[in-house]
Amino acid sequence: MIAYLVRRALYALPILIGVNLLTFILFFVVNSPDDMARMQLGDKRVTQAAVDSWKQERGYDRPLLLNSAATGTAQFTDTIFFEKSVRLFAFQFGTSDAGRDISYDITQRMWPSLAIAVPVLLVGLALNISYALLIVLLRATYVDLASTVLLVALLSISGLFYIIGGQFLLSKLLHLAPISGYDTGINAWKFLVLPVLIGVVSGIGAGTRWYRTLFLEESSKDYVRTARAKGLSELRVLVRHILGNALIPIVTGVVVILPLLFMGSLLTESFFGIPGLGSYTIDAISNQDFAIVRAMVFLGAVLYIIGLMLTDVSYTLVDPRVRLQ
């Protein structure tokens, strides 16, 4: 098991190098640092001196790959590639183009992201699974038919409308929760209720449909027929046999997204003004802060790979047939 994990971690290394090279090419080769500086400083009427000083302040004035002016290892380390890309492997994100420490920002902002993402995941999971079980229990009735229609309709509504509609209805008309904002510590709960609620509701369509398919697939298998033939009640068959066996894809599907919860939700956070990593990313994109975008790309890739590894591990835990070697 340990040996397998170590090997998987080693496999992850080339992928991270690939991600890093790709971002390096996108940000420094396709567009030179000069282009970035001009864009930041305001297009055409910028003097070369202003561009140079902008680059120097942020350390973009080094050569790309090989510094021929330096000697020894500094030939390779005193370059943009080493300073801006290789350092990411040690999680040294450096400073943003606006001059803030990115690592500090990330550690500060990941908690609000988690405060929304975790409740949305848990409540959504419980709600979707119980609703899907109910549909399967009442299959081939009007409840089933009406639910199918309802789920497709819910699925077809853009996420933006859930947020805008929810804010408008619950905050503006009914005054049940503040429209947006955030508070520290335990006082944050009243700002979290609405985003969590909207997050759960907007996930019902896709989630319940997926679990319903899983359960229906499982319920057409032979062991279910045996269970029914033994005279077990329908509810017991459903919960003990169908749900028990459907847990394998459910657990592995949840585990793979667990690490990405840190990244937060882009839309929800920026609409509700929550200072998490999602709104951090959005702000970086709209301020065209390339340093933060690079850091988030790398962080996202790391978390994704961790998610893949966790999935493999969780397979061995929930499915005794799977052995890792």
Binding site: I15, N31, M36, R38, D43, L266, I285, V293, Y304
Partner: peptide, 25 residues
Amino acid sequence: TTLNSIPGVLLIAAAILLLQVYLAN
């Protein structure tokens, strides 16, 4: 796997930002 591990929104954002730089120049 490499392409998949980059968060989609960020890859799109990076590409569009670069296009904007190109269009501006």
